[in-house]
Design a protein around this nucleic acid. Structure first.
Length: 891
RNA sequence: GGGCCAUUAGCUCAGCUGGCUAGAGCGCUACGUUGACAUCGUAGAGGUCAGUGGUUCAAGUCCACUAUGGCCCACCA
């Protein structure tokens, strides 16, 4: 097999993906084998309207790394994909398109036809994001792809609704809800964002009834709501107003009498210490109104314009009404002053318009009882949240949870399964109810179904089990529930994560003590920011399209770079050039493999340390065993970055930089025993490296796996199905690691002296190494390391002991002296400078070390190993500084 | 008003339960077309670990406070 000298991801990625698909490699075993425990990940279903962004790319990578690792470890792995119907978002997209293309509003089209349009849109555009996940290499079981609005899931949603209804956990009522005037629907608290906004604080004067010339001044940011005022509240301890409590004020313009009430939520220090109470349009006032039995007046229409309560201002939009009303008040002399003011304004996440608190009839879920098991799950270990600090965020929300408004005045979604008889008595039903059939309780004819649909999270909170067939006890549900790993973004800890846990315990009747949480680990991944540390967003235009990155660098490079850049829970600043790291690494692996292939001829990949004699062979097998342990431990604990970093170092620094160089001269020997041994080790190390790398860079390793086996003339299946390598504990050889360490130091020392003497052309040098170990000497002599070898291989002169040759520099490594003869053109000044600089640095270090070793506390309390290391270090430094002194003297 | 996170080389970040002369990648400088790789190699320059105080024989690492930046929660009109 001919491999290109530069790795070209586009030449392989789609082929490899097709091979996986053809082999059904992503699907768990249909026969559900006894010995293979399942491992399950449910994808956080992206919106059907969505396109892949960097957050998805990172999260997709982490999930795929995990599922591939677990699959290789022998687990029956299932990563279930799917999409969310995303009520408001999707309806808005199609509504916009409908208007742009056909100049029709949804009302003009009608409910049924409009929903039909959305389905059409979904069928043609709704799979885009899942296709993008494939480009990333995601090994999802596509045969199990689900959609939150498909019939099976709708059945689950109804079942859930009715069960909660039967347990009296769902109620309907008039409440102050967050009203989105643009989309004309209620939205939940969690879909509202508080945005700091510059605005004005208006001071309005309300005359005291019966006391000519006396006023109470209130401060408000929303003067237009004054027509809905039904009281004024002051703090009971506020002496300024003490005599007014219980008296009436006359509301200007509307001429309504409203009482002054005492309420301790009023801050006397803010504004005037008196606050107007508008129960219909402010959540705090709603509470105050309720406490003091003040009537509630709604002054707004559903589209945000003033209603008839506003008299002459009826029909005006809020902003316009505000202005007009202030002018009128000013004319009446009731406007005291206007100040600049910055405060938080609630903005709808969906329409980005200001939320209006509005009283309306909505459906709610009682959250408190549902929250209890979800809280317990974290406390008793059924659910682990990582990084741990998010545990607190999760618990804080659950412990202060408010009832959840689940009805939405939309058309796209799960219709609320409630029907009413002519008196409006509701009936919740699992099955459709025919209009005209008798209400099961009242016997009166059913006249209509509730027109509203459910919040989109009311289906996605069932995701971990509804996707497996719940409410039926299907074989899939039995085998794959509960799941193991949920990786998601921090923004949806409340919206989704907490609710899934609630739903799991509430609907599957598992007790928290069973430890059957819908998922045992919840992993909150990093947020991907732009290069300046700002959030990527469509509107800011600073987003990076992961598909562009895959196009430019290849999917493996994108995946690996993301993992290398992302420490657990720490946000990552990303610029496209950061992906270079991964690209270079994939190229490095590719070329190392090409080199190995060019030397292989039918070796086996199962060489062990037992048969290895050469120092460098024992060393690399030891390093392999170590890195295998490290990567395994890291992936077990979802420390993706640690695993990837360990592999990166091993492959590049140990295998490529050292082992391949050290082994080249032996490989040149053709059929010697040493060459044969080296080839066996190469095959083994490469094979295991490909296995370890596969979860991170699946495409490339799959290609190389095939090529490796072709070269060896061996049969091989797909790497994706190959078992994860076992760390060979017997191979761990600290002696070999230390000895190669000495070789590395020696070579480094020679290079360093050579470089700092600025020897130009290939002038031969002599190197004397005093008293190295036998093995070390051989490895050094055998070293085919390029820069070093070419410069002085012919003259390499390794002696057991020696006088310092004339005209030489001396260096030290591993307690040994290295002499390098100086060329004629050495820049002595520069050499002197460098030597002095090093001497100074070393003196400082020696002082520190001496002080440490004179320290009784250190000697008595520190780990004996640490003390010994410190002694050795000091000894080495003393030798080195003496050598430096000799060098300086010799110049 | 509460809470969380960051602050280490020019840039982006590692540095686990305190203990080698504080590391990596990019960028920069010098040299190198050496049969895996110029998407490479070798060497080098560059850091009072944000500040102050404390604990300790020993602090980049633990504690407290301060400063700067960022995020989340909260009904101050």
């Amino acid at each position: 097999m001919e491999l290109e000298s530069r790795y070209d991801p586009h030449a392989h990625e789609s082929d490899v993906y097709d091979q996986w698909m053809a082999a059904d490699a992503f699907t768990p075993s249909p026969d559900k084998p006894e010995g293979r425990e399942p491992f399950v990940i449910m994808i956080p279903p992206p919106n059907v309207t969505g396109v892949l962004h960097m957050g998805h790319a990172l999260n997709g990578t982490l999930q795929d790394v995990t599922i591939r690792y677990q699959r290789m470890r022998g687990r029956d792995a299932l990563w279930l994909p799917g999409t969310d119907h995303a009520g408001i978002a999707t309806q808005a997209v199609v509504e916009k398109k409908l208007y742009a293309e056909e100049k029709l509003t949804r009302q003009e089209l009608g409910r049924e036809a409009f929903v039909e349009k959305i389905w059409e849109w979904k069928e043609t555009h709704g799979n885009k994001i899942l296709e993008q996940y494939r480009r990333l290499g995601s090994s999802c079981d596509w045969s199990r792809t689900r959609f939150t609005l498909e019939p099976d899931l709708s059945r689950a949603v109804r079942e859930a609704f009715v069960r909660l209804w039967e347990r009296d956990l769902i109620y309907r009522g008039a409440r102050l809800v967050n009203w989105d005037c643009v989309l004309q629907t209620a939205v939940s608290d969690d879909e509202v964002e508080m945005v700091k906004t510059k605005s004005k604080l208006h001071y309005l004067k309300y005359p005291v009834k019966g006391e000519e010339g006396r006023f109470v001044t209130v401060a408000t940011t929303r003067p237009e709501t004054m027509v809905g005022d039904t009281g004024v509240a002051v703090n009971p301890t506020d002496e300024r107003y003490a005599d007014l409590v219980g008296k009436q004020l006359v509301l200007p313009i509307v001429d309504r009498d409203i009482p002054v009430v005492a309420d301790d939520t009023v801050d006397p220090a803010f504004g005037t210490g008196a606050v107007k109470v508008t129960p219909g349009h402010d959540p705090a006032d709603y509470e105050r109104g309720a406490r003091h039995n003040l009537p509630l007046i709604n002054v707004l229409n559903k589209d945000g314009t003033m209603n008839d309560e506003a008299g002459p201002f009826a029909g005006m939009p809020r902003e316009k009404a505000r202005k007009a009303l202030c002018e009128r008040l000013d004319e009446l002399g009731m406007l005291d002053k206007i100040e600049d003011y910055v405060h938080n304004v609630p903005i709808s996440d969906r329409s980005k318009s200001a939320i209006e608190p509005l009283v309306s009839e909505q459906w709610f879920v009682k959250m408190k009882p549902l929250a209890e098991p979800a809280i317990a799950a974290v406390h008793n270990g059924a659910l682990t949240i990582r990084p741990p600090r998010w545990k607190k965020v999760y618990l804080d929300w659950l412990e202060n949870v408010h009832d959840w408004c689940i009805s939405r005045q939309l058309w796209w979604g799960h219709r609320i399964p409630v029907w009413y008889d002519e008196d409006g008595t509701p009936y919740a039903s699992r099955d459709d109810v025919e209009i005209g059939s008798p209400h099961p309780e009242t016997g009166k004819p059913i006249v209509r179904q509730d027109p509203d649909v459910l919040d989109t999270w009311a289906s996605s909170w069932l995701w971990p089990f509804a996707t497996l067939g719940w409410p039926d006890q299907t074989p899939d549900l039995e085998r794959f529930y509960p799941t193991h790993f949920l990786s998601t973004a921090r923004e949806i800890i409340y919206l989704w994560v907490a609710r899934m846990v609630m739903a799991g315990y509430a609907l599957l009747d598992h007790l928290p003590e069973d430890k059957r949480c819908p998922f045992s680990t919840c992993f909150i991944h990093a947020t991907v920011l732009d290069a300046k540390g700002k959030r990527m967003s469509k509107s800011a235009g600073n987003g990076i399209d992961p598909l562009d990155l895959i196009e430019e660098f290849g999917a493996d490079a994108v995946r690996l770079s993301l993992v290398l850049l992302t420490r657990e829970g720490q946000d990552v600043k990303l610029a496209p050039d950061r992906i270079e790291m991964g690209k270079r690494f994939t190229n490095k692996v590719w070329n190392a493999a090409r080199f190995v292939f060019s030397n292989l001829e039918g070796e086996r990949t199962d060489v062990t340390a037992a048969s290895a004699t050469a120092l460098e062979d024992r060393w690399i097998l030891s390093r392999l065993a170590n890195v295998t342990q490290e990567v395994t431990a890291a992936l077990e604990e979802y420390r993706f970055n640690d695993g990837a970093t360990a592999l990166y170092r091993f492959v590049w620094n140990d295998f490529c930089d050292w082992y391949l160089e050290l082994v080249k001269s032996r490989l040149g020997e053709g059929d010697s025993e040493g060459a044969r041994a080296a080839r066996g080790v190469l095959a083994r190390v490469l094979a295991d490296s490909l296995r370890l790398l596969h979860p991170f860079t699946p495409f490339q390793t799959e290609v190389l796996w095939k090529a490796l086996h072709a070269q060896l003339g061996a049969e091989a299946g797909l790497l994706i199905r190959d078992p994860w390598p076992e760390a060979d504990a017997a191979a761990i050889d600290s002696g070999a690691e230390a000895d190669i360490g000495v070789v590395q130091e020696l070579v480094g020392a020679v290079r360093s002296v050579r470089a700092l003497t600025m020897i130009a052309d290939r002038r031969p040098l002599s190197v004397q190494v005093v008293a190295p170990a036998e093995d070390t000497r051989r490895v050094l002599a055998d070293s085919h390391e390029r820069a070093l070898a070419l410069a002085f291989l012919e003259e390499l002169d390794v002696v057991a002991s020696g006088e310092r040759p004339p005209s030489s520099a001396v260096s030290v490594a591993g307690g040994m002296e290295v002499f390098v003869r100086l060329g004629d053109d050495v820049d002595l000044d520069r050499l002197r400078d460098t030597l002095e600089k090093r001497t100074a640095k070393l003196e400082k270090a020696i002082q520190g070390s001496e002080k440490k070793l004179e320290n009784k506390g250190f000697l008595e309390r520190a780990d004996p190993d640490v003390v010994q290391t410190e002694r050795d270090r000091l000894g080495e430094m003393r030798v080195e500084i003496e050598l430096l002194a000799r060098n300086r003297a010799g110049l």
